[in-house]
Amino acid sequence: MVDMTAGQSAAVPRQIRKPKSPIARFFGRRSTIAFLMALPLILLIGVLVIYPAFYSLHLATLNKRMTEFRGFDNFSFLLFKKDAFWTVVYSSCLFAVSAVIFKAFIGFVVAHFVHNIPAKGQRKWRGMLLIPWVIPPAMSTLAWLWLFDSSYGALNWTLAKIGIGPIPWIGEPGWARFSVILVNVWFGAPFFMIMYLASLKSVPDALYEAADIDGATWWQKIRYITLPMMRNIIAITTLFSLIVTFANFDIVRVLTQGGPLDQTHLFATWAFEIGIRSGDIPLGASVSLFMVPILAIAAVFILRDINKRGNEA
């Protein structure tokens, strides 16, 4: 009796371990559990991102009344027959690139100033400088619209006092482009400032002291220490901002509605103009799909650089 019990209990653990159905093993794996836990999010992304993406691909292949399949006709029409398309490509690129450059530059400079404010006052300044970024852009753009007004706006009124103007801020294509970029820079620079500030704070003071002793001037310290140390943050924020800026909608929509003469349209506003306002949804979808390859190329370039440099700092 005693022997038997002992024998049985010894056999039990072996029994638990051995026969496991393939299904049980599948559900026991860590990767499976991880996948299951991420599933709700994956489903959400599927519904909100992937489905619309494919749906717009589908839309882009239809005719204007959405009754017939037309293949790539919409795309080739845009590329070869519609001159306005190239204007939009040009102004979108101009808008995104110049706005990001200015945002990055201003953010970098302001981050340095804030970094050098003594710790006590710094919070206050950080908070104040972030204000443009936390106001919904549609609202702040409205305020800018009033400032820009050629007859009653504060800007022209002020300029008139010192004998300049009046400037057609949104009435003339060149100035309108400038104004749209200006508002975008005003709105987006705080984001760069806060990212650069965080990155500046992570550069050890001792590096600057070592550079001081090595004989570096302030500019050489920025050139050889700060910029290389911030390289990854600069790359990521630039990419991120390039994408968001390129796809900007609200500022142009509120400020110029793409005018004058469609000169300030971006992809998003033009797609809206064609798809919703003129009622050619398939063509509008095709316009917006043209953003994908352009953004993808930018992403690949910048991310490749991050991978290359990622494991040194």
């Binding site: 001792a206 590096l207 070592a210 050889y224 140390m229 040194e312 700092a313």
Partner: peptide, 8 residues
Amino acid sequence: QNYALYPH
């Protein structure tokens, strides 16, 4: 003390 070598 912490060497302060330029990491890049």
